[in-house]
Design a protein around this nucleic acid. Structure first.
Lengths: 337, 337
DNA sequence: TAGCATAATTTGATCGTTCAAACTTTGCCA
DNA sequence: TGGCAAAGTTTGAACGATCAAATTATGCTA
């Protein structure tokens, strides 16, 4: 296998200097048309590709985004994150970026990993998933001035000054359940129940709010049930409630796991056609023919890159971290089945 | 933010030369104990971390493994791959390796991506998933002498000389269904059906074989049904077959999607307790309380790294590609619910 | 066509590490 | 204690790209 050609080889072949070859690659606009074509021909003939490590060393940029792969927890909704990572990878490569994975079991271990990756110049930016209240990772990243965006809002009290803001992208959960509720009001009937998680989770409360708003706006009302995120618990709960109150016309759920439980309960009670809407549009819901709110991970990925790199650039931007409340809120889409 | 320290800084602080610092990091055995400790102290005090790009440039190794993220196809079984990628990331970092993702929609596009990554020195090795018959990617990688391992056997005719062998890791599907069948023979009864895919898929036939072997060995018999990989089709098929032949004691399925369909059909016929075993142990099966054969992606990941790097090394090995039939066959585990 | 501003191109230095070879110290034996 | 091999350490060069500054070519105006 012959040695890979370098800029030097291309330059010689095209009768120009190293730097001109570099310019053709990085700022073609400043090279004269005729010269550029000659260089491009030489590049193609030699099959030249820039050596990433050399470029990184000189520019001090790795053009790489670090993403933590969360430990597999089981459960149905992991798919959303996987689709997000996939979309991020695709869109990153369009922008000349790469996605590097890392694994960590605890926040402390994650910070250790990030130290290695950041100090070693392996990544220019980080995408955090599953952020939580008083997250040590966000403050660490801000202190180190590492560009990052989180997938998920910082759910914090309005009067909380301890947690400085940071850029984030999230899906508008309330909009999703609002759309689901409106659809059911129009097609199923006025008695629509909400099946949610116990109050206190930012995401769950947000999704519940969408149902509540849509119901109020329509002058309708329905019960609000809650349970932990478990198909079996949801099945039992909905079974009991439906048996006690057969007037329910439809159920909006804050997660597909709950929706599947609700659907099975309804089926067991002889009402397999009872409309149920879930959240996340997981393969399981799809396979069972249950409607669901789709998170559109592709748009989340696009939003993340916009925040990190601006609407068009190919380089990670370094902004003033102190006052960055930039964010993107993606409108989810109702998938009716 | 102060400039990151370099080997030079560490060397000065410890009163030794650059190279000695480098040796402490890369071959500590050849450095005298006292010197080593002094250098290690300096490293810790300065918080030094080697700059990955400089190292890569000099050593011409990226210590990075490329993994393609397959396009999201929907369907229930994607989880296995995701768990595999996660396990690979964890184990790689234990060996000083990183995992870089790339996306591609077609084999041709994938080869284009790989060209960039390999020629650019971004990856030292590749893990292929979803290999298929006459896969252009494997021959391309072999021609370029790029180390790689596939997750999944090359299912080829025994007399096929066109396809040179390559290292692979796979799960022993037959062993999985064999275990499931034996378990059901012992706990449910002798009439065990197999629900498989149409003949011709390597994976599906392999799994069906396990059932067949276990049944023959026990002198038992049962029908073999096939359908495409669809929950709804499986439900309809099993519903009809069970109604026609109520003597069935249990069903072994080659995928969780089919198992869920079978379970729902049984439930609808008033036999919710009919034992059904799936394959892949997906969250959906878990949530529904369906037994399943677990692929153990962690062991697959370990096998992949062993093949790429040997049982202990920290460097990707470059073997003779012409005669490499090395492989690892992982024994899956039956999860009873 | 001379003069000059601007565009286009080239040259030398540099990023941080490891390799290869030269050099110095250590420890052992006669 | 001198000699010498082995162990330990240092030095100069190189990996392949881009930056910054210097140089040369081009085109326009008077």
């Amino acid at each position: 296998m012959a040695k890979a050609p370098t800029v030097e080889d291309v330059a010689r072949a095209a009768g120009v200097s190293r730097q001109t070859v570099s310019n053709v690659l990085n700022s073609p606009a400043i090279v004269r048309g005729a010269t550029r074509e000659r260089v491009e021909r030489a590049i193609a003939e030699l099959g030249y590709r820039p050596h990433a490590a050399a470029r990184r060393l000189r520019t001090r940029r790795s053009s790489t985004i670090g993403v933590r792969l969360d430990p597999y927890r089981g459960g149905i909704s992991g798919v959303v994150l996987d689709r997000f990572v996939h979309a991020l990878t695709e869109r990153s490569s369009e922008r000349g970026m790469r996605v590097l994975l890392y694994a960590a079991r605890t926040p402390a271990e994650e910070i250790e990993r990030l130290s290695d990756l950041v100090d070693g110049g392996e990544i220019d930016a980080v995408v955090l998933t599953n952020t939580f209240y008083a997250d040590t990772r966000t403050s660490w990243l801000q202190a180190r001035n590492v560009p990052f965006v989180s997938f998920g809002r910082p759910w914090r009290a309005a009067d909380d000054d301890d947690e400085p803001p940071h850029p984030w992208v999230d899906v508008d959960g309330a909009a999703g359940t609002r759309a689901a509720t409106k659809y059911l009001l129009a097609h199923a009937g006025p008695r629509i129940a909400l099946l949610g998680w116990p109050e206190g989770s930012g995401t769950g409360d947000d999704r519940a709010r969408g149902w509540h708003e849509a119901m109020s706006a329509a002058g309708a009302s329905g019960p609000r049930w809650s349970t932990e995120d478990s198909l079996a618990l949801a099945r039992d709960l909905v079974g009991a409630e439906l048996a006690a109150d057969p007037t329910i016309d439809a159920i909006v759920c804050v997660a597909d796991s709950l929706a599947i439980g609700a659907h099975l309960a309804a089926t067991a009670l002889g009402r397999p056609e009872l409309p149920v809407v879930g959240f996340d549009n997981t393969p399981a819901a799809e396979a069972l023919g249950i409607s669901s709110v789709e998170q559109l991970p592709e748009q989340v990925a696009a939003g993340v890159l916009d925040l990190l790199m601006g609407p068009t650039g190919g380089v990670v931007l370094r902004r003033d971290p102190a006052e960055d409340e930039a964010h993107v809120l993606v409108e989810p889409r109702l998938v009716v089945r």
